[in-house]
């Protein structure tokens, strides 16, 4: 069986909000090291990979490997019923057909319990090789989210061009064009505000802004984001 408790429900709320528009149904693969998810969107263009390590829960108990088939739209609705600061406990029994969630307010005067029916999910797990990327860009995640949103007014596509001292995001459409250039700024106080460009060779690649806007929803999870690019290899964010 699985039993895992998170001190703040907000962590799972943010994760589900970031994933729910890309992934309809997927398995939470649970074992004694934690809870993992690998899922593609329905058009097989985008892959979400997530690992919640056992150390992030207290307590965490998983006796044997189990795959919990989750409908993310349902889980997202249930997670909206949790307060950000609530304790969250998730449980699934042996051969369980439900995932149980319990939200407990900080002073324990309100306890909510929900069961979500589990599904059989056929998982297409991809074998992704280690890649040495031509360019790696680190920047504040809020900045990345804003760039994707701003350039969406011009085009459905963005071209990301990384050169030695800058990265340029370019969008060009029927009504005009726009570009945003971000330069490295390593002398900042806050690590999350840092911008770095690590380059093996210059790259220039185009991507659908629809997917980048989906990925940018995960910016609430971390202060900084890393973009890794190479010719003929999917962008890793």
């Amino acid at each position: 069986m699985l039993e895992a408790r998170l001190p703040s429900a907000v962590t799972l709320k943010k994760i589900i909000d970031a994933v729910k528009e890309l992934v309809q149904d997927a398995n939470f693969d649970c074992n004694d090291s934690g809870i993992a998810l690998q899922a593609m969107d329905s058009s097989h263009v985008a892959l979400v990979a997530l690992l919640m390590r056992a150390e992030g829960f207290d307590p965490y108990r998983c006796d044997r490997n189990i795959a919990l088939g989750i409908n993310f739209a349902t889980l997202a609705k249930v997670m909206k019923c949790a307060g950000n600061d609530d304790n969250l406990t998730i449980k699934a029994g042996e051969d369980a057909d439900v995932l149980s969630l319990m939200f407990e307010s900080t002073n324990s005067d309100r306890i909510s319990e929900f069961d979500i029916k589990l599904m059989d999910v056929d998982a297409d797990h991809l074998g992704i090789p280690e890649t040495d990327y031509s360019a790696t860009i680190k920047m504040p995640s809020a900045e990345f989210q804003r760039i994707c949103r701003d350039l969406s007014v011009m085009s459905e596509t963005v071209t990301i061009e990384a050169v030695k001292d800058a990265v340029k995001f370019i969008a060009s459409g029927d009504t005009g064009s726009g570009s945003i250039t971000v330069k490295p700024n390593q002398a900042v106080d806050k690590k999350d505000m840092e911008v770095t460009v690590t380059l093996q060779e210059p790259v220039k690649l185009a991507f659908s802004l629809k997917y980048l806007n989906h990925f940018a929803k995960a910016s609430t999870l971390a202060g900084s984001v890393t973009l890794s690019l190479s010719d003929d290899v999917p962008l890793m964010i």
């Binding site: 593609m40 058009s43 097989h44 263009v45 985008a46 892959l47 297409d124 797990h125 991809l126 074998g127 992704i128 090789p129 085009s155 459905e156 596509t157 185009a206 991507f207 659908s208 997917y211 003929d232 290899v233 999917p234």
Partner: peptide, 14 residues
Amino acid sequence: GPKQQSLFTYFGPR
């Protein structure tokens, strides 16, 4: 604009 390629174009099943 260019169409995004399926990930199966790059990565095989595990």
